[in-house]
Simulated scan of single mutants.
Amino acid sequence: MNTTTADLLADAVIAPAAGYAATKVMEPVSMKLYQLESDETRRREDAARPGSPSQIAADKTLGLLGIHLKGKARGQAGAALHYGLAISWAPVYALLRRTTGLTPVAAGLASGAAMSLIVDEGITPLAGFSAPNRTYPAVTHLRGFAAHLAFGLAVAAVTETAWTILGRRPPH
């Protein structure tokens, strides 16, 4: 597959929109799945959760720089980290599509699954942005995985639509 510089530049422009839109899809999916959990499971999960992982990550990261935000600015930093991660992950989809024979659905599912496993199940607890994985009920991990699959599929939909409009869609 021959990827041009113009393709890569288009991908760099599309990825932020795809990542942002995909997060807007993922959040209600995750919330609906959370609401479907039993009261006992939600109680156990809420008791295990030390706070929003994005907020904890923002606090810790900024703290390393000697910055300690309060109030609205603190919340904005957490949201920026959350959306920044989504935007920075969206190019994984384009990379998979442009360098493998994966279909849009397969590449979307693979990129969402990879984000779930690498970020949520790996980096987040190891960095102390959440409680250790074993602290949460199994359904919490399954919900996160399913929500990230929705993220990947939404990135695929936005990216494929933009590629089609721009005439830069790879084959498959």
Rank of each mutant, 00 (worst) to 15 (best):
T4K: 09
D11T: 05
P16Q: 09
Y20H: 09
A21E: 03
A21D: 01
A22L: 02
T23G: 15
T23Q: 13
V25C: 08
S30I: 01
S30G: 14
K32S: 09
Y34L: 14
Q35M: 13
Q35F: 10
S38C: 07
R42W: 02
R43F: 13
R44Y: 13
E45P: 01
P50T: 12
A57L: 03
K60D: 10
K60Q: 14
L64P: 03
G66E: 11
H68M: 07
H68P: 02
K70E: 14
L85M: 15
A86H: 04
I87P: 02
S88W: 14
P91M: 05
R98S: 02
T100L: 07
V105E: 09
A106N: 06
A107Q: 06
A107P: 00
A110C: 12
S111Y: 02
G112R: 00
G112D: 05
G112T: 02
A113S: 14
A113P: 00
T124K: 05
T124Q: 03
P125T: 07
G128M: 09
G128R: 13
A131G: 07
A131R: 03
P132F: 07
T135H: 15
P137K: 10
T140C: 12
L142K: 10
L142V: 10
R143A: 00
A147F: 00
F151G: 01
L153W: 02
L153K: 00
A156S: 09
A157V: 11
V158S: 00
V158M: 03
T161Y: 10
W163C: 07
W163R: 06
T164F: 10
G167N: 13
R169K: 15
P171C: 08
